[in-house]
Design a protein around this nucleic acid. Structure first.
Lengths: 157, 157
DNA sequence: TTCGTTGCAAAAGGTTTGCATACCA
DNA sequence: TGGTATGCAAACCTTTTGCAACGAA
C-alpha cells in the first residue's frame, strides 16, 4: 500500500504569458464566451496565442473549478469566470447572451434530497436557464414561437 | 392578413419502416442512448437504415417532445423516450448509465420563480443529475475522486 | 402523381492530439 | 538543465446538408 504513484499530484502550474492572457480576457468579459471568441479577442488585442492553448487553459480552469461552463444548443462550451463560491447557476439571454447569476439554493437542496432519496452517491447537477431578457424583448417582441407539438399525429402500430 | 404561408403547418408525418424502427429501438432501450448507439442496435437487428435518418428522426421526435434529451460531457446528445407528461428530468448513473426519472416539481417551481423575478421571458431550463447508483457503488466503492481543486495555486498578478 | 423521406458522400463545427520547439522554474 | 507549455497541422467526433433516387399517401 501507499503506492507513491497514486498520491502523485498533478504537474505544477506554470504561469505563462498565454495563461495570464486567457485569464485576463475571461475577466474582461462578464458574460459567457466560447474558446473561439476568447481567442479572437486576444488576437484582436495583439496577443499571440494558439487556439489550442486557449482550449487547454480553459479545460484546466474548468477542472480546478475556476470557471463555470454552460453548453450552447450546438454543444459548444461557453466559459465564464466563477464570481464567488456559491453562485454557480446562470440565467442566460438566448438573444444577446447576457448572463445573470441566480440564487440556486432551492436547486441545491433539491439535488441533495434526490441524492438522499435514491441511494445514488456523488450526485452532481447541472442547471441551465435560458430566456429572453426584457431589453431584447423590448427591441423585438416575439420571434414566432415554434408550433407547440401535436402537429405530427404519428400512429405507431 | 390571414396570410396562408404564415398559417402553413409543418409537413405531414409519413410513417416509414425506418421511423418505426427508430421508435422501436428507443422503446426497447429504457435508458439514454446516442444516435450512434441506436443506429448500431438497429443494424445489429438486421434493420437497414442510414445514420442520417436516425439523426433526422431523433431531431423530429425532440422537436415534438416525444423524447427527452440530455448531453454527455462530450457534447453528445443522448435520447430517451419520454415516459409520461410531467417527468422530464433524470438521475443518470455515470458508470452504468441507468437512468431514473425524478420528481422535479421543486425545480419547475424554482425556474418559474426565477423567470418572474428577473423579467426574463420564455425561460427554459435544463436540469441534469448524475451520480453513482448503489449497484455500481457496491461493485467498486471508490474510483479515486479527482483531487479537489486548489492543487494549482495560480498567482494572477 | 406528388412531395416528403432516404441515404450516400461530403461539409461543417468544435475539440483534441502528435510532435518538435520554446520557455518557465 | 529538466520537464512543461506552446503551436501548428492533422485527426476526431458528432451532427448537418446537398442531391438524386425512392416510396407513402
Amino acid at each position: 500500500m501507499h503506492d507513491p504513484s497514486a498520491a502523485q499530484s498533478p504537474p505544477a502550474w506554470r504561469t505563462t504569458r498565454q495563461r495570464l492572457a486567457v485569464l485576463g480576457a475571461l475577466r474582461g468579459c462578464p458574460d459567457f464566451a466560447s474558446a473561439r471568441e476568447l481567442h479572437a479577442t486576444l488576437q484582436a488585442d495583439g496577443v499571440t496565442i494558439g487556439l489550442t492553448t486557449v482550449y487547454r487553459t480553459l479545460r484546466a480552469l474548468e477542472r480546478t473549478g475556476r470557471v463555470d461552463v454552460v453548453r450552447e444548443r450546438t454543444g459548444e462550451r461557453l466559459y465564464r469566470p466563477r464570481p464567488t463560491d456559491g453562485h454557480r447557476h446562470y440565467l442566460v439571454c438566448r438573444r444577446c447572451g447576457v448572463s445573470l447569476p441566480v440564487d440556486a439554493d432551492a436547486v441545491e437542496r433539491w439535488a441533495d434530497d434526490v441524492a438522499a432519496a435514491t441511494g445514488f452517491a456523488e450526485v452532481e447537477h447541472t442547471v441551465e436557464l435560458t430566456g429572453t431578457c426584457d431589453r431584447c424583448r423590448a427591441a423585438e417582441p416575439d420571434p414566432a414561437p415554434d408550433p407547440p407539438g401535436q402537429e405530427w399525429g404519428m400512429r405507431l402500430r
